[in-house]
Design a protein around this nucleic acid. Sequence first.
DNA 1: TATTGTTATACTCTATAACTATA
DNA 2: TATAGTTATAGAGTATAACAATA
Lengths: 148, 148
Amino acid sequence: MVTTEECARELLEVVPLVMRDIRTQMRSTRTPDLTVPQFRTMVFVDRHIGASLSEVAEHIGITLPSASKLVDDLIKNDLMSREEHPEDRRRVSLAVTRRGRTILEASRERTLTYLSERLDETSQSDKEAIVEAMKALRFAFQKQKTNI
Amino acid sequence: MVTTEECARELLEVVPLVMRDIRTQMRSTRTPDLTVPQFRTMVFVDRHIGASLSEVAEHIGITLPSASKLVDDLIKNDLMSREEHPEDRRRVSLAVTRRGRTILEASRERTLTYLSERLDETSQSDKEAIVEAMKALRFAFQKQKTNI
DNA sequence: TATTGTTATACTCTATAACTATA
DNA sequence: TATAGTTATAGAGTATAACAATA
């Protein structure tokens, strides 16, 4: 019998451990690479072409000013583009540039390779548990936040 | 059949999502609270009284200068203490103060409560998968890094 | 010489507050 | 008035490089 509390305790111990590893890996390559928030932003915009800044902020879970600056830096590096929304001039319409997509893919591949190496000795049943756990966590943590 | 690659892909999508939530929650309370790295540092030192700065840096996964500053701020806030190591004057001997332990426990409780709410609707079998997954991930990601 | 730590400097990520432009 | 976004400012967390003290 696994209690919710035990589950929470494990998450609080292990998630930062894994996250630290992902972050360090993404920052440690020689080639021009992306930080985790930059990576997540680009993945989102790549999947939602024409997304607004508010949508990015909400999805990534940061404030609008933070998102503005994050996107600004990506645009300065020619990884994303920002245009006026055709139907509402207050909004921006974001997209990943060709260069951005190339770098995004390279970054993703490097990180997946790294993670795969980490998981190399993990048993089949543990891998299944990980995939099931991730699905459950995605559901639990993607639920609409009220943001009061 | 779950491939290692699928497993890695899920981790890369979901771990940052959960981590963001934990981070936001820890920073959002009114009472004097801890950031995630501060929390992790204090948990480690609390479990390893007399730990050196190098040990903290290695465990948390940051550089020595970063650890030095992080600990510095904790000491300024009277959450930790730093003394000379009795047998090697180059080393420091870290400990959590009484005040620090109080705040650490309060912060842990708040975060666990928050996470438990998030996991409220998670099924028993999914909770089991999460606990098993966390154990596997702890093993996979705690392995000695070469730090070349 | 090697190890332990600190200081200097810089960049990213984040926030809140105040603002502009458009609807 | 309400919404979308930017700018100003500040603080935490991180890094690399250069340094000091001790072993």
